[in-house]
Amino acid sequence: MGSEPLRFFSPEGHEVTWEVEAEPYTDPFERRITTVVDGTRLIERRVPRSEGHDHLYDLLENEARMGARLLALLRRGYPAELPRLIGYNLDVAEPIVLWSDHRGEPVGRYAGRLLLAEQRELAAGLFRAVRILSACGIVHRRIEPGTVRWDGAAVQLTGFGQAALVGDRRTRLGEAPYAAPAQREGHGRVAAADDLWSAAMVVYRTVTGREVSDRPDLGPVPALQPIQDVFSADPPSAAEVLARLRMPDPLQGAPVEPDPGLAEARAAFDRARRLKTGGEPVPQPVSQPVSQPVDRPEPAAPPSPEPPAAPRAWRALPTRWWERRLPLFAAIVLVVLVVALLIRVVS
């Protein structure tokens, strides 16, 4: 395994070159690399030239975008449950995104095998991750046993390719039981509850080891009582679930806050992206849940292979009530004017 130079941009937008040693690609989209200087292990995600379809590039760019957003908002105490974006290089034939190393193994292999303390830590870690994401205005949309990792003590949520912002228009994504029904159907707006459903389903599957096709029966599993209403029509928030698990809200001491220092770099990133996509206007999210505005100039519509996402230029802006009734008002005014005119003529 010889060393090779790796050129990329840091999340702050600085060009960086590191000498790294790379393991072979066991997965065409991912390999592990190690920096020569200090032996830090990273994950390099890429779109191979041979696989280069637009939607795959979009997914990779979305990963970089979400990673940068998390970094910007979680500067104080980046949570262990989420991988950290190290850098990206998207303007090359084989674009890459660099993440901190994976932790543990996909949680699917622990199904039905975790002890009570581990079950609790898994649930707490996963709902903490969902809570933090939702506070950052991000919905992962692909929480399932393959993207949740467990190292025997802590959780890590990976795979942000399909993530979207809260309030974006939902596109169909995922299958039962892990994808929430609304997400499967592609109705409405992306909401944190989508992730809550998926996280609860992963917890159910991992704790019980049982497969389900849709809503599970939590009756025989009293230990899952804290998540029993997650699958209901009125689900709790991640913070509520954490409280039931007797876990503190991770954002209590360190609320999310934007980093103004990164704004320029991200703006540059988005300008470059606009140029690349032929100046296509990028839609705005409908709502922004973070109290302070997060400098995300234009969130990408979450790419999805099925069905094709709506054209990016289209984005329904909220219409006020009087805008919807405007034709009616105009007709009434017209009628009144006509009647008044007639009365005047007759009199």
């Binding site: 009570l116 019980t208 025989p220 599993v221 009293p222 230990a223 009582q225 804290p226 039931r244 007797r246």
Partner: peptide, 10 residues
């Protein structure tokens, strides 16, 4: 599953 404690918070 059946013997796991629910916890008094429930």
């Amino acid at each position: 599953d059946q013997s796991a404690p629910i916890g008094s918070a429930a």
